[in-house]
Simulated scan of single mutants.
Amino acid sequence: MSSVQRAMRLLECVAGHEHGAPAKQLARETGIALPTTYHLLRTLAHEGYLRREKGLFFLGAAAERLSSSGAQQKRRSTVIEALAHWRDSIGVPIYYALYRDGEIEVMCVSESPGTPAVEEWADFRETGHAHAIGQCLLSQLDEDSRRDHLGRYPVESITPYTVPDSHSLLRRLERTRRMEPVIERQEYALGTVCAAIPITMGATAATMAISLPAHQTDRLLPAVRRLQDEIGQLLGSLAISISI
């Protein structure tokens, strides 16, 4: 255990030297005996956690992968916590999704016993034309990308309220105003209404959405507007990772 602790101290010390540091300096700053420092540095370099250039030690690829993974997990935790906060404060399930590599991906769903999410009874990826999440994502794509998606996942009725054909869907998407919520009423699941908000993430189409029982339709627009306001206030400090 003591060897692990010393190795970690050396890694932390190296991380504090952007332009690298020699073994003697690292031994002095960590208080580790020079022979032990040399031994640990050689081991860490062999395992890829450090690299040596002209007598100076720098963080290696393995350490950088650990750092990247930790940062990604932190971003994911931040997003999950934000969605849970909005779920409880607004009283609706919250969905976060994006369009990546030609596919609709629901990255995170925050629900509770009192605010259950919609059951995915038909594959979300294949039924983007029928739910608010998919319609919101498709509305952010260019026409060629929309047609490509619908060529792979043709429009089909899954409830009596589903948009009837691709032409009708494309016309609806063209009329969708930028940054306006997309509303869907029982097109994906009978008894459920949904709304989705476009999220600006560079070139990536993303969205956050909510759902409610159909008998609470009057809550839908006020709830999604509140979510939109809260997201706008938080985006300055919350970097939503596209890869969470």
Score class of each variant (00 low, 15 high):
172 R>C: 10
70 G>F: 03
2 S>E: 14
156 E>P: 00
58 F>Y: 11
73 Q>R: 15
192 T>V: 04
33 A>W: 03
3 S>W: 13
208 M>S: 05
3 S>E: 15
143 E>S: 04
67 S>E: 00
69 S>T: 14
111 E>P: 10
125 R>D: 04
177 R>C: 12
230 E>Q: 06
83 L>M: 08
197 I>W: 12
118 V>P: 02
39 H>G: 08
127 T>I: 03
221 L>W: 14
17 H>P: 02
81 E>S: 15
33 A>Q: 11
148 D>K: 07
228 Q>T: 06
159 T>I: 08
96 Y>Q: 05
45 A>Y: 02
144 D>W: 04
239 A>S: 11
185 R>V: 02
131 H>L: 02
179 M>T: 04
154 P>K: 12
51 R>C: 13
75 R>K: 15
29 E>M: 11
18 E>L: 06
30 T>D: 11
134 G>Y: 05
46 H>T: 12
30 T>V: 10
163 V>Q: 00
136 C>I: 02
62 A>P: 01
132 A>P: 07
30 T>K: 07
9 R>C: 04
238 L>I: 14
66 L>F: 02
89 S>F: 10
193 V>S: 08
5 Q>P: 09
225 R>Q: 11
39 H>Q: 08
30 T>C: 03
208 M>Q: 01
103 E>I: 07
97 A>C: 06
5 Q>T: 15
89 S>N: 12
202 G>P: 10
74 K>Q: 15
85 H>N: 14
84 A>W: 09
24 K>A: 11
178 R>L: 14
102 G>L: 09
93 P>M: 11
75 R>P: 01
137 L>Q: 10
204 T>I: 05
116 P>F: 00
34 L>E: 07
50 L>P: 11
64 E>W: 04
127 T>S: 08
5 Q>R: 15
18 E>P: 11
209 A>K: 01
72 Q>N: 08
128 G>Q: 08
143 E>T: 05
94 I>T: 02
178 R>H: 15
21 A>W: 14
193 V>Y: 03
32 I>A: 12
110 S>M: 13
193 V>W: 01
168 S>I: 09
157 S>T: 01
28 R>K: 03
82 A>I: 05
183 I>D: 08
131 H>N: 00
183 I>V: 14
226 R>K: 12
141 L>I: 02
46 H>L: 13
85 H>Q: 15
169 L>V: 13
228 Q>S: 06
49 Y>K: 00
61 A>E: 15
140 Q>C: 02
165 D>K: 04
107 M>Q: 09
24 K>H: 06
128 G>I: 07
167 H>T: 03
33 A>I: 09
180 E>H: 14
146 R>K: 12
201 M>T: 08
153 Y>S: 10
213 P>Y: 01
102 G>P: 12
198 P>I: 01
214 A>I: 11
199 I>T: 05
163 V>C: 02
243 S>C: 03
